[in-house]
Design a protein around this nucleic acid. Structure first.
Lengths: 234, 234
DNA sequence: GCAAAAGTGTTATGATTACACCCATGA
DNA sequence: TCATGGGTGTAATCATAACACTTTTGC
């Protein structure tokens, strides 16, 4: 029987909604993924998901946490969840390696320090990706979009306190379509996903009514409404 | 570094909706899962999911198919899909073993021949289960329920042609709550998930209008409505 | 006062559940 | 003709999207 060694690796798709300088004084939020650029063959110069080999005394989740902590400062990781397994025998050169992918989320204002080979990339314009890492990002994004509808997973992308317009930008970037702040508020309040703090933000340089601040009621992953759906407009 | 060998196994949660003799002449459909009883330690006498060790030249899906074919005659498997990975280091005794679980579905009328140690069990009353196999069944059931709402996955549980009342029984058993045949028809027809064959069944011994026959439009897994939901009554 | 941003109220839409009523068949 | 199961039509419910309008601030 052909039972030679099989390696097992974990790979994390870590997302964050980040502000991007558009024009002179226009900033726009968009969903980014954390990638590092390979310095060596194989797939030199291409971009990879963070992760690495699973050790024998750790489960998958511990392994991802360890590897993310090694490569990047990701103590700010607010959510980590197992996704699919990629098991095609020839998916990477060398010994046969099975990959378990994870979805990781970093809250919006956090700016963890990154090693020089590591960078945030907008998911809408991915650089050349190593191996089968591109479909992994795609898959993770699909799961994130689905879960934003029926869970409180937004807590892991948002600041601890936020105005509704901020939350709208986060949801809209992650979902990939415009979101109405008004309706978002009512949907999330009805489900007790967000709560008013009672305080308000100060209004910006150009005036405007000060925004009420909210926080997520739970900062632990929870299914809030099994059948909910945030639909795109139109 | 503690990189001793790590085994990898695949385990399949195979479901089928089966008729069960209730009272004298009452039959009731309910969701069953395929299990085999362990003859040896560890966990002797307890019931296990079918599966086994992953070989180095196969991907996970091929491995499940092979192992199911070895243990039980499951050429009738209409759907097979990867679920979660269970990776706790001590989840089974002996060498560290990671388990990838699969969801398998067998259409309703099929009655594949089973080895003597293997049997269908109602998911509502599981026997004593080996290792961590009970939560695996639970997880698979949750996924099945979710997917019945927004995909055409019912095709893998239903006969090739069926009356709507039959389909209602299948959905209702799998979902775990009553389903209205009338509404099921309209929901699935609107999405073009099922199609009328044009033929009708003969009415039963106690009369009744002959039922129109339907079939699933596609017999390949497909997401039919991203945002759909079959809700329980009440 | 005016522009800008936030928040409220209300309506429209669409999918799904609920249910009363009509239809076709066998004994 | 009656019981039995099948099918149609229609109303009720509910969640969400859409949008006009009011409120509060800075300049």
């Amino acid at each position: 029987m052909a039972h030679t060694s099989t390696e097992h690796e974990v790979l994390a798709v870590v997302f964050q909604v980040r502000q991007v300088q558009q024009a002179a004084n226009k900033r726009k939020a968009s969903l980014h993924v954390l990638l590092w650029q390979r310095a060596l063959e194989p797939e030199k110069e291409k971009w990879s998901l963070p992760g690495g080999r699973l050790e024998s005394d750790e489960d998958l989740t511990s392994s991802v946490r360890r590897q993310l902590a090694e490569k990047v400062d990701l103590r700010e990781l607010a959510h980590l969840e197992q996704l699919a397994v990629f098991s095609e025998p020839a998916r990477v050169p060398g010994p046969r390696t099975i990959a378990s992918t994870f979805l990781g989320l970093v809250p919006s204002p956090a700016t963890p320090e990154l090693p020089p080979d590591t960078r945030w990339h907008p998911v809408s314009t991915l650089p050349p990706m190593a191996f089968d890492h591109a479909p992994m990002v795609e898959h993770a994004r699909t799961r994130l979009v689905a879960k934003l509808s029926y869970t409180n997973i937004g807590f892991a992308l948002a600041p601890s306190e936020f105005a509704l317009s901020t939350l709208r930008d986060i949801y809209s970037s992650a979902l990939g379509h415009p979101v109405d702040a008004t309706n978002l508020q009512r949907v999330l309040e009805r489900r007790h996903v967000i709560t008013r703090t009672g305080t308000t933000a100060r209004s910006g340089r150009s005036g405007g009514r000060p925004a009420a601040l909210y926080r997520f009621t739970d900062s632990r992953y929870r299914v809030t409404d099994e059948f909910a759906a945030l639909r795109p407009p139109g």
